[in-house]
């Protein structure tokens, strides 16, 4: 009997039309169709979504936690990148 480990998949759910897909969790499945079925049965039982994406976890290229200092910390002191220095003219509710 073959006893191969099933692949890990990441599940993304779009909760409503117009919103983007968000990561909901992961699951194991033997193939792509099974992953989609299981995502439906595991993560959308309570009407959580209107669209599902599944992707094999080993297909995701992720940033390395060991490199997070070089990756993310340089942005922390660049407050000028936040659009907080504009004066909003009177009477304009949204800019």
């Amino acid at each position: 009997m073959q006893n191969k480990e099933w692949a890990l998949y990441e599940v993304f759910i779009r909760t409503r039309a117009g919103l983007s897909h968000r990561h909901a969790g992961s699951l194991h499945a033997a193939d792509d169709q099974m992953a989609l079925d299981y995502a439906r049965d595991t993560y959308t039982r309570r009407s959580e979504g209107v669209s599902l994406w599944v992707v094999r976890s080993d297909q995701i290229v992720a940033s390395d936690p060991a490199e997070s200092a070089a990756f993310f910390e340089p942005a922390e002191d660049k407050i000028y990148r936040h659009p907080t220095f504009y004066e909003i003219p009177d009477g304009v509710e949204n800019l």
């Binding site: 099933w6 699951l27 194991h28 499945a29 079925d37 299981y38 049965d41 595991t42 039982r45």
Partner: peptide, 11 residues
């Protein structure tokens, strides 16, 4: 046989 199939079956 698997956790995910368990959930599907119960559904």
């Amino acid at each position: 046989p698997e956790l995910e199939e368990e959930l599907a079956n119960a559904n």
